[in-house]
Design a protein around this nucleic acid. Structure first.
Lengths: 361, 361
DNA sequence: TCAGCCAATGGGAACGTTCCCATACGGACT
DNA sequence: AGTCCGTATGGGAACGTTCCCATTGGCTGA
């Protein structure tokens, strides 16, 4: 440890060790086997004495590997995004990569900028969970050879891997559970799906199951800020149920939150009117009588994303892969029409078909 | 827009524009006024034609400003951290800075690494919300001239600004509210304060107010995973209350979450036994009968952090500053002993002394 | 015994920028 | 008319790495 202001350079280490800078460079860029034992010792000694640390800027300039992975997140305040991010992070750490996160805050211009920033730092891969409206910029990045993983989105014109929930399975599981619990009339609520393909996929699957017959279902696409319209739709749906028991399926955590708020405010009884959401939230077991959810395996999803990146870094030109994961159902009071007082009832974690289905498209 | 694989360099732009690279460099490093109008026009034309974008690596290598701010977060899954982060981000955006976030996940080794990573990219400032046990590494960074802001922490031996909640005011507000509501016996629960000075500050203030007399209070320092000990302590506290009404004050959001869980599981009636927490959480109004909180002004805190950074970037050598912010009290059912059914009751946002007190230490 | 090779090492040119210094030129002042 | 200065520009050396291409010396195999 020396106390000089400016950090030590590779040249100083080389001088101190009495070797050439090339050898020191080799030591730090994973070519240690090429060096003799004596050489290695002298280098470590000098490096630790000087507190040397390679300068990634210089390294990146020349073109060596950066060990950096970027992640672009649309909304950092969404707990689901954070959970995935955590998964990605752990996978990165395990792989010896550093993760640099940028939040675009759902702002298009911001997203474009972040993308430019990220791509200008020689990242070795990019995990994207954002609107994806800049498919041109993304496509360019992908074409330039940067491995790309789309989280929970798919973009037709971009050559990239995709990782996410098995949306069809999720919708099917939800419908099956709700019907099992005796709910005959269902309402699927989602935010506008234009920007997120997973919303679209869930909506479509639900619609498809409705058309299949046997299912009396309806869908509501709504901007969550629009409380008035939500309240109206809610009332209309409940009225329309007739003899059937009504239940609501929320497309994601944000919807679940908004809906729980409104149902509470309007005095609807949870369970009486079924409520179920995709995405597990930390308060789902706290609000009476507990909210039934389909939890996404965020850890596995994050891991898979990083795996894709690394695979592509090695064997670059494969067809885009697509990995989907099944959710885990946790049944709670909000889908129990009999309204059993759930005082001490532990939640019954029902199903957990956490199989991984991989399909190359 | 050209489709070449490698991005255009400054030299190519210069050639295309028929000027020298120095002039192009000047154009992009904020010295546009020094260039003649004709020169400027030729440069923009060439640059846009080639899709030129300055390479931050090369720039950082030479020593120009990077426009980068780093943020080190101890636990990204903590909603409070995320809220602050969001504030910092917005402030950065407004100031034309980019934010690069690293999460240390409460892991010391990880933290050390992230710090190294961040400091190796020529960041212009660092916002730290982490254990701070590496005060040596932090001190070194600060000494080397990087502006440093400590969030919600203070570190004796590090020359850095500090921004955070006015902990004394928060504790005082909480105590005042609880007594006003008729609670005579208080229990303050916190996670071990060793690593976080704000925990320490809150604990100390509470203890101090106990010693002042007039307040019958107790404190519990506990690892949140230790459910058994928590349950015991809870029971003992409730029993010990005697004639007085008991209330619990949670030192932060994590504690509030854990405690709400346990109280629900054990069948304690919220309100009957008061519950109040520092940090607002999205579900506080969802769990019956609503939980009273002191919300931190996370936006303002984030803004202040960035302000500190920028101030220090200009006039480097001032004494460390310290900015604290008062919280906002939102009273809900969990501190209403009369147990008014809160069906439609809107929360009464009581106080909001969001004054900023700045003191130089 | 000598060509040929491999393993270990070093020298120097890139990489794309910024910044110091030099140059050219026009106008103001003596 | 000549000196001086200020303004607009350009040339070239850094910055700290990596990587290509030597160079050395010991060893194998004909």
């Amino acid at each position: 440890m020396n106390d000089r202001r400016r950090p030590a350079t590779i040249l100083e280490v080389a001088r101190q060790a009495g070797v050439s800078k090339t050898s020191v460079s080799r030591y730090y860029s994973g070519e240690r086997e090429r060096l003799s034992g004596a050489m290695r010792e002298r280098i470590v000694a000098a490096a630790t004495a000087l507190g040397y640390q390679p300068n990634p800027m210089a390294r990146g300039l020349k073109g060596g590997p950066s060990g950096l992975v970027g992640m672009l997140v649309a909304d950092i305040r969404n707990p689901f995004s954070v959970a995935i991010m955590h998964g990605v992070e752990q996978a990165c750490r395990q792989a010896g990569l550093s993760l640099m996160v940028c939040n675009s805050d759902n702002d298009l211009e911001q997203e474009r900028q972040q993308l430019a920033l990220l791509s200008s730092y020689r990242i070795e891969g990019l995990v994207v969970n954002a609107t994806g409206r800049h498919s041109d910029a993304l496509a360019q990045l992908a074409d330039s050879g940067t491995p790309l993983v789309l989280l929970d989105r798919s973009l037709a014109d971009v050559h990239a891997d995709e990782v996410g929930l098995d949306n069809d399975a999720a919708i099917d599981m939800a419908i099956a559970h709700l019907r099992e619990q005796g709910y005959g009339r269902l309402l699927f609520i989602t935010e506008p799906p234009a920007q997120a393909s997973s919303r679209q996929a869930r909506l479509e699957r639900f619609n498809q199951r409705c058309r299949d017959g046997s299912l009396s279902g309806d869908t509501l696409v709504i901007e969550l800020g629009d409380r008035q319209r939500l309240d109206q739709a809610l009332a209309r749906f409940v009225d329309s149920a007739g003899d059937s028991r009504p239940a609501i399926l929320c497309a994601n955590g944000q919807v679940t939150l908004a809906l729980t708020r409104r149902m509470k405010a309007l005095g609807y009884l949870l369970g009486e009117i079924g409520l179920m959401g995709i995405d597990e939230l930390e308060w789902c077991d706290l609000t009476e009588p507990g909210i039934t959810t389909l939890a996404q395996p965020t850890g596995a999803i994050g891991q898979a994303a990083v795996d894709c990146l690394r695979a592509r870094a090695v064997g670059p030109r494969q067809a885009p892969q697509r990995a989907t994961f099944a959710p885990t159902l946790t049944a709670r009071g909000s889908t129990q029409p009999a309204a059993t007082p759930s005082a001490t009832a532990e939640p019954s974690s029902v199903s957990s078909s956490s199989s991984t289905s991989e399909t190359s498209s």
